[in-house]
């Protein structure tokens, strides 16, 4: 078996070694003064008041799901693309059908609003925000959308800022 993959192996090992060699060389010359404060969680200068194990928004998961499906589509289309030129019109039509069926899926998630990061905006609630002071409901929707760390976090930040 031809060992072309040696290049990949060398790049892999070299990349890993590069990181650790740098860390080792730096450990020889840098000052070493450990303290508890340096090990604490950094939260924009505020003292951390909760665990960093907070639950993420569901939307990340939905996007990852959609990504995996279209990732698989690429895995199927790759061998198709390699032989595409030699097969002509048949490969073209078959590829079109394959992509077309999956396009239905993309259309579905698009139309249902799963691709919109902030769902409240897509549902036409944004005029409330523009007309006057945002209602409590809208603000809640925006905070929970995953743009920030969640309502508790934001509330805590504001309190700390005003005091």
């Amino acid at each position: 078996m031809s060992f072309d993959y040696l290049t990949i192996a060398v790049a892999l090992v070299g990349g890993i070694l590069f990181v650790y060699a740098n860390m080792w060389i730096l450990s020889l010359v840098r000052p070493n003064k450990p303290s508890d404060l340096k090990l604490s969680t950094y939260e924009c200068g505020e003292e951390a008041f909760s665990s960093s194990w907070l639950r993420f928004d569901m939307r990340f998961y939905t996007v990852a799901l959609i990504f995996v499906v279209f990732d698989l589509e690429i895995a199927f289309l790759f061998p198709w693309a390699v032989v595409y030129r030699s097969l002509g019109i048949l490969a073209f039509v078959e590829g079109l059908i394959f992509v077309g069926i999956l396009f239905l899926g993309l259309f579905y998630v698009w139309a249902k609003g799963d691709l919109d990061w902030v769902k409240a905006f897509a549902k036409g609630r944004i005029p409330e925000v523009l007309d006057g002071p945002p209602s409590r409901e809208v603000r809640k929707g925006v905070f929970e959308s995953g743009l920030s760390g969640g309502p508790e976090r934001n509330g805590g930040g504001e309190e700390a800022g005003t005091s």
């Binding site: 998961y61 799901l65 499906v69 589509e73 199927f76 069926i101 999956l102 579905y108 249902k112």
Partner: peptide, 21 residues
């Protein structure tokens, strides 16, 4: 099977997104 695989992927996508929602 190649074309059916795309139907399978479509079903997986719609089902997974529906459950996640």
């Amino acid at each position: 099977p190649f074309e059916i695989a795309s139907v399978l992927l479509l079903v997986a996508l719609v089902g997974a997104v529906f459950i996640a929602r």
